[in-house]
Nucleic acid binder design. Structure first.
Length: 305
RNA sequence: GGGGAGAUGCCGGAGUAGUCAAACGGACCAGACUGUAAAUCUGGCGGCUUUUAGCCUACGAAGGUGCGAAUCCUUCUCUCCCCA
């Protein structure tokens, strides 16, 4: 018999964490956070990581375990989560992967193609080259190396252009050619993916409230402290860091910072929705209309069936 | 009461007779996405259609001039500022 892994996805502020805890309590589950920011220490308010009492209600994994200076990535997550899943199942519990980092979840479920990883030196070199000769120049270089990838990437999408070139140089193969050796947990387990949705307006309201709460809890201080620690490449991207930095640098008022923090969170939620919309294996549950209890029951039914 | 400035699309804001459904920015909507993904990037954005094109409705309101008006004239309404 194949073991089941439950995955809960959805936009930020959709109520994934709370929902996952409820579910975990019902089915003897343990929660694995698929969230690029909750993995970090020292940014609990910013990342809306589960608090003490929440953690007491069910066991959480991959939360608050990295220093802000450390790097996190879809590949690291995927490897760690894979181990956690195995372990949880061994102990007779049900793994519940919950989070909003679409790529991380995809990397876990479907796998990533084999790669030696990044080459920072090369990236810097390419970055500098783009600065000097323009993005189009790099794009043309990519066209020579991997025309297929070139067709899928927009010339302005510098990060992707660089990564695609990097793959060619580091792996000796094209991104396109590398593909299909990927292995993810879907090959080992019965993976059931559920998405939490609600009315867009409702979601935006929840985001507003959440940001207001963040300020009341003291994000400003948290980010101030975080900046002193010189956060690494991953942690520094958290929504709120850049926005508050503008305030610290006196570019705009705190009110303004809050406003753009809300806006950027909305935009993020929008991107998450676009990502998840494309994933046809997701079973969507409108927890606002349906109610959480019913949604939990629905999941229970579908995993025992 | 007197004088001045102004009213533009969801918002800010350019335009001051033809090439204007109206620059630019914001908000919003839609999309892409394989090792930095809370990142990076793209498209749309008055309505309708047979959507590399056409038609309709639009620049506070009502009239007017003119081949032609968001742009000029008249009156009205409203807003802001200064003097009383």
């Amino acid at each position: 018999m194949v073991d089941t892994v439950i995955v809960i996805v959805g936009a930020t502020a959709a109520g994934k964490s709370e929902f996952a805890i409820r579910l975990a309590q019902k089915i003897e589950g343990e929660i694995i956070s698929a969230d690029s920011m909750q993995a970090y220490k020292c940014m609990e308010i910013l990342s809306q990581a589960p608090t003490g009492p929440e953690k007491a209600r069910s066991r959480h994994h991959l939360i608050n375990f990295l220093k802000p200076t450390e790097v996190y990535s879809a590949a690291i997550f995927s490897a760690l989560a894979g181990k956690k899943i195995k372990n949880i199942i061994k102990r007779g519990k049900v793994p519940i992967v919950a989070g909003g980092s679409g790529l991380y979840i995809k990397a876990l479920i479907d796998g990533l193609f084999p790669s030696k990883g990044k080459n920072i030196k090369l990236r810097k070199k390419l970055q500098a080259l783009a600065g000097k000769k323009g993005r189009a120049f790099l794009y043309e270089r990519l066209r020579e190396k991997d025309p297929a990838a070139c067709g899928k990437i927009h010339p302005n999408d510098l990060k992707r252009v660089i990564r695609a070139i990097e793959i060619c140089e580091v792996e000796g193969k094209t991104k396109t050619g590398l593909a299909r050796e990927t292995r993810g947990i879907k090959d080992e387990y019965d993976v059931k993916v559920f998405g939490l949705t609600m009315d867009r307006k409702k979601l935006y309201e929840r985001i507003e409230k959440r940001v207001d709460l963040m300020f009341r809890k003291g994000v400003v201080k948290e980010v101030e402290r975080l900046l002193c620690m010189k956060p690494g490449i991953t942690a520094a991207q958290a929504i709120g860091v850049k926005q508050l930095q503008g305030y610290f640098n006196k570019q705009y008022s705190l009110e303004k910072a809050k406003e753009i923090l809300k806006r950027d969170t909305r935009r993020f939620a929008k991107r998450q929705l676009t990502w998840f919309k494309g994933d046809k294996q997701i079973v969507w549950l409108d927890i606002d209309k349906r109610g959480k209890k019913q949604a939990v029951n629905y999941i229970l039914k579908s995993i025992t069936a």
